[in-house]
Each structure stands twice: as structure tokens, then as C-alpha cells.
Design a protein around this nucleic acid. Structure first.
Lengths: 244, 244
DNA sequence: CGATGGTGATGAATGGTATTTATTAGGACA
DNA sequence: TGTCCTAATAAATACCATTCATCACCATCG
């Protein structure tokens, strides 16, 4: 056995899968602790027990490493949620379930959620990425719930399912930003109830006979509102506000 | 006059305000074009007609420069919106106005909006910053609208005003992310209507008083009153009282 | 059993960029 | 007109992601 010779460099050979998972585990740690920009490749390499250059054998660059780490997390999450969801019935309960599980994920992994929101999603190549597809599948469950609810007569037929998706996920994100910055805390169950109720009241079909007068006045109100908007807001391009 | 001597360096002395505004204008350009990370101080200095070091005389670092640029934009925006808002009456119209103007800002300045969402807001020192205060004032208008609406009996008493704020601004943000990434377009007026309707249906008090006609007529009256106000019959500040 | 080629792994460069610093020029003021 | 103060400069520094020339381990073959 050769003595610990300073001139001989030590090499530790491992199967690629093992190396990759070591690096990803270390990267996850560092990204979570430091955020993307302050995470150092040196630090990741150190914790993974490799040298900086080795990371570039498996990942094209720092960003790809980030994407892979978040993808891994997201996929795991989806697997866990999927079959549970299948057991939930009724539009209110289904919406509540989706809101609740999403809130729980954020509450459990704030740093990773934040990386997803702040670093991944705004990237110009996000659409077209695997994470985009995963996220689409994730959020489309809500779209489907709304569609089914409309078909079943539970929800207002004129609501846009995709707008409901943005309403719900946008609300959750906006509500949790302070927490994601490390300020304060929230209770997922409580907040899930509040959001679901608020949204659902906007969706629930009011079983009123809906007299003809009703709709006529509603149209009148809309017309005047537009008129006001056009008159009060922008002299620059008044026409567009009057689509008719 | 000294000849253009390569050994003598040219110095262009300017009043500080002028230098600062030059630098900020150049920085705005570059940040808008390239985004925060890809914006180079060198580039900014070049366009501002100064040398890199000079920027650090007026701004502590790149991030402070960014914050100042966004602050400036935001303040300007607030000034423009403020008095217009004062003229709008009725909770539906007020919400619609807020949604519409916000959508318009995003539509007009996507890059700056994006910097605000992606770079500024997630920073750990955001709360406590001037921009936080500005943004709070901006979004609190909606909170006030909801509070007044509840007090006036227009909106469900059990709704949380701050949750409505998150619902509305979160929805807008989520909806516009694709546009902010440079994919596709949206129509502010149309989207404002859709969002306002969706949210308002979740807020509007549904229990009809005994006679449907009664409330229908009341709404008609409200609508015409608004129209009068908008037309300039009752101009300066009819809003704060929120009649009725 | 020894040589050898392929490749995982290394750590020292490289390059790009924010930030700092020593030095200079212009103007205000005496 | 001389002197000091400070804006402005340009070169230097520091920090990192990324690249690259080289090395050491293993399998395979002679």
C-alpha cells in the first residue's frame, strides 16, 4: 500500500448513479441553505465529497443542477399526492384538498418552493421544460375539478376554469411570500379553508330563478362601468376599453 | 484649450443630480433589456457616459441601483393612478379599476414588473424597504374598498379583506407570468372584467331581500349615479364617503 | 501476470464581472 | 493666481463559474 503521499492524489471511484445522487443531495442542501446565487459550486463539491470539476462531468452548469434538484423534489411530491386525491369527492372538497396539499408543500419546503417560484419559473426556457410539464399536470387537476363541477351543475357555467387556476395558485403564492422570506408562519388547514370558501363562493351556483330583468340590469351595469372606465382612466387609448 | 492629449484624461464635471439621473436612466435601460443578472455595470456606465467607478460614488452596489430604479418607476406610477382612483364609486367599479390599472402597468412595463416580482420582493430585506411601503399603500386601496364594501352591506361580512388582496394581486401575477416571460399577450380590459367578475361573485351578497325588483332598481339607481359622477356632475371627491 | 487503453476524477488555470483604490483634473475660494 | 477639495478616472482586486491538461484506477487482453 502506498503511503499517504502528497504527490499522489487520492481518487475515489464510484458508480455514476451514486455520484449523481451524492451531488444532487449536496446541491439540494446548499441551494436550500443559501439560495441559488449564494450557493457555491465549491461548497456543493465539498459536501458531495468530490472536486468542483467532477460536478461538470454530470451537469452542464450550475443552473442545470438546480433544475434537476427541483425536478426531483417535485416528482416525489406529485407521486405522494396523486392517489390520495383520487379518493376525494365533491367540488368543494376537491378544491380544498388541492389548496391544502399545496399549502402543505410550501410549509414543509419553503426554500425549494421559493427556488421554483423565483428562479425556475421566470426563466425564458421554462415553458418547454420538464418542470413546466410537471407543474401543468399538478395545476390542471384544479382545472379538471372546475370543468367537472360545471358539467355537474355545481359551479357557474360562465367561469373560466383556467382563470380559477390562476386565482387559486396565485392567491396561495401571494399569501405565502412573507413566509417564504422567513417572516412569520401560517396554518395550512386554516388558510386552506379560508381560500376555498372565498373562491367557492365565487363559483357556487346561486339557485335563483334569475329573472330576465336581472340579466338586463347586469348588462346595463356593465355598460355604464365600461363607460366610466373609458371616461375616467386613460385618454391615451380610449377605444380599447369599449370592446362592446 | 488643451489639445486632445492621450496622457491627459478627460474629466466631465456635472451636478450630482444630473449624474444620478443619467446613471439611473442608463441603468433602467440596461436592467429592462437584460434583466438584473445579465446587466453589466460596465454597460450602464458606458451608456451613462461615466466610468464604472463613478457609479459607486452614488450607489452602494448594483442591487441598490436596481432598487432605486424600480422605486422611481413605482412612485411615478402611484402618482398617476392616485387621483383618478378617487373618482370611482361602487365596490365592483373600484375593484375593476384597481385590477385594470394594475394590469395596464404590467402590460406597459413588463420588464420592470418582472424585476419587482422576481428580484425585489423575494429579498430578505424587502419588508422594511421603501418599496414595501409603496406597494403596501398601492395594494391597501383594495383592502379599503373591501372594508368599505362590507360596512356598506355590499359585500359578505365574513370575507377577509387582506385575503381578497392576495386573491386579486396573486391572480393577476399568476395570469401574467407567461406574458412576463415574453410569451403571448393579453388584453387588460378584458382580463380585468373577467377577474373582477370572478372575485366579485365570491364577494357579492347573494341573499336577495324580499322583493327582487327592489334591489334591481336600487342597483340601477346606483349605476346611473355613478355615471353622473363620472360625467363630471359630481366631480372632485365624491368617493371617500362611498354613498349608501 | 504484466502491459495498456479507456475513463472517472483531479486541481490548477481561465475568464468574466462586481467592487475597491490610488491617482488625477477642475473648479471654488481666497 | 495659487491651493485645496472632491468628482471622476482607470487600473487593480477579489470572487466564482467553468474549462482543461493531466493523472490514477480498472478491465481487458496478450
Amino acid at each position: 500500500m502506498p503511503p499517504r503521499n502528497a504527490l499522489k492524489r487520492q481518487v475515489n471511484r464510484l458508480p455514476p448513479e451514486r455520484r449523481i445522487s451524492d451531488i444532487m443531495a449536496a446541491a439540494k442542501e446548499v441551494f436550500v441553505e443559501k439560495g441559488y446565487n449564494d450557493a457555491l459550486i465549491t461548497d456543493i463539491a465539498l459536501r458531495a465529497g468530490v472536486v468542483e470539476g467532477s460536478i461538470y462531468r454530470f451537469f452542464a452548469n450550475k443552473r442545470e443542477l438546480l433544475v434537476k434538484v427541483v425536478e426531483h423534489w417535485f416528482e416525489e411530491m406529485l407521486r405522494d399526492d396523486a392517489e390520495q386525491f383520487a379518493a376525494v369527492c365533491g367540488s368543494w372538497n376537491q378544491i380544498r384538498f388541492i389548496v391544502y396539499t399545496h399549502l402543505t408543500s410550501i410549509h414543509r419546503d419553503p426554500a425549494l418552493s421559493r427556488l421554483m417560484f423565483q428562479e425556475i419559473r421566470p426563466a425564458p426556457d421554462y415553458r418547454g421544460s420538464h418542470l413546466f410539464e410537471l407543474n401543468r399536470a399538478y395545476t390542471n387537476r384544479l382545472v379538471d375539478v372546475v370543468k367537472v363541477g360545471i358539467a355537474a351543475g355545481d359551479l357557474r357555467p360562465e367561469t373560466s376554469p383556467s382563470l380559477v387556476r390562476d386565482l387559486v395558485f396565485g392567491c396561495i403564492e401571494h399569501r405565502t411570500w412573507a413566509f417564504l422570506r422567513g417572516e412569520g408562519d401560517f396554518d395550512p388547514a386554516e388558510l386552506a379553508d379560508a381560500i376555498t370558501n372565498l373562491v367557492h363562493h365565487g363559483l357556487a351556483l346561486d339557485d335563483e330563478p334569475a329573472s330576465p330583468i336581472e340579466s338586463v340590469v347586469a348588462r346595463l351595469e356593465t355598460a355604464t362601468a365600461r363607460l366610466e372606465a373609458a371616461a375616467g382612466i386613460a385618454p391615451t387609448k380610449p377605444s380599447s376599453a369599449l370592446p362592446r
